[in-house]
């Protein structure tokens, strides 16, 4: 939960928009607790989401264990945000 609390609101909003857009989610009323499978997000949608994250934030997110285990939108956001923050730290140092 610490990860989620640490996720700043602006980044959260941007990532939710990516999930909705790239996951081709019709009903936009989902939140962090919504399960990815409820949104119909399959393997191909996952790849689209990662690609959009790479384009927007310049960070490559490999499909690692944490990402594979993400079952909800919030869990997915936490993993992706972690990579973005690591990347920003690396760039600034």
């Amino acid at each position: 939960m610490a990860d989620r609390a640490a996720l700043d609101e602006d980044l959260r909003r941007q990532l939710l928009a990516i999930v909705a857009e790239e996951g081709m989610v019709k009903d936009r009323s989902f939140d962090s607790d919504t399960r990815l499978d409820e949104l119909g997000i399959e393997s191909a949608d996952f790849v689209m989401i990662l690609m959009a994250v790479e384009e927007k934030f310049g960070v490559y997110v490999p499909v690692d264990e944490k990402l594979t285990e993400a079952k909800t939108v919030g869990e997915l956001l936490a993993v992706v945000a972690g990579h973005i923050e690591d990347h920003r730290r690396q760039v600034s140092s």
């Binding site: 790849v47 997110v61 490999p62 499909v63 690692d64 264990e65």
Partner: peptide, 19 residues
């Protein structure tokens, strides 16, 4: 673009593998 390749080392079946 498929994001299945590792940016570190390919380590099949190992902990910390990522592509």
């Amino acid at each position: 673009m498929l994001h299945v390749m590792t940016t570190s080392r390919c380590r099949p079946f190992s902990r910390e593998r990522n592509g």
